[in-house]
């Protein structure tokens, strides 16, 4: 399961409206709810918050990868939120986070989850690509960038 199979305009939001970490998590899960990808908003949000409580998924260079496993989904779900202004997400380097990749997986489908996370980790190494995503003007442009078209 590749990232480009998961991304579509309906699961991309730019710019995010949130100003702090708890709101970002709620807004990301809401993207999935609005896109019809999940039915049980509360269960998914709790799974994400529980994981985040253990250690922030805010990485370096403005990227965060909140993720969780929950039986509230039957297949892997992705939401991508972009906050060009940056939001404090308790990141490793202390810098504001601009790209948020939310991944929600079913407990019995760990393989695709790991592969998607690994793909995001590879993406995060390309500062130029991340800058292009942050500077995108629309969800459509974000999807085009990820699909490489």
């Amino acid at each position: 399961m590749s990232l480009i199979d998961l991304v579509s305009e309906k699961v991309v939001k730019i710019p995010l409206q949130s100003n702090d970490k708890p709101d970002v998590l709620r807004e990301l899960v809401q993207i999935l709810k609005d896109a019809g990808e999940i039915a049980d908003y509360d269960t998914v949000l709790k799974a994400v918050q529980d994981r985040e409580d253990k250690l922030s998924t805010g990485l370096q260079a403005g990227i965060a990868v909140p993720h969780a496993k929950t039986s509230a989904v039957s297949s892997l779900k992705l939401a991508l939120g972009i906050a060009p202004q940056g939001i404090d997400f308790d990141s490793m380097d202390g810098l504001p986070t601009k790209l948020f990749f939310l991944l929600i997986a079913s407990p019995d489908r760990s393989g695709p989850h790991v592969e998607a996370l690994a793909e995001i980790a590879k993406l995060a190494r390309s500062q130029a690509f991340c800058n292009a995503l942050v500077n995108a003007r629309s969800a459509g442009e974000v999807v085009e960038l990820i699909q490489g078209d």
């Binding site: 590749s2 480009i4 993406l123 690509f129 990820i146």
Partner: peptide
Amino acid sequence: SHIRSRRDEFYD
């Protein structure tokens, strides 16, 4: 995948 990216990172 039906859609393949030009980016090297995307090969599976």
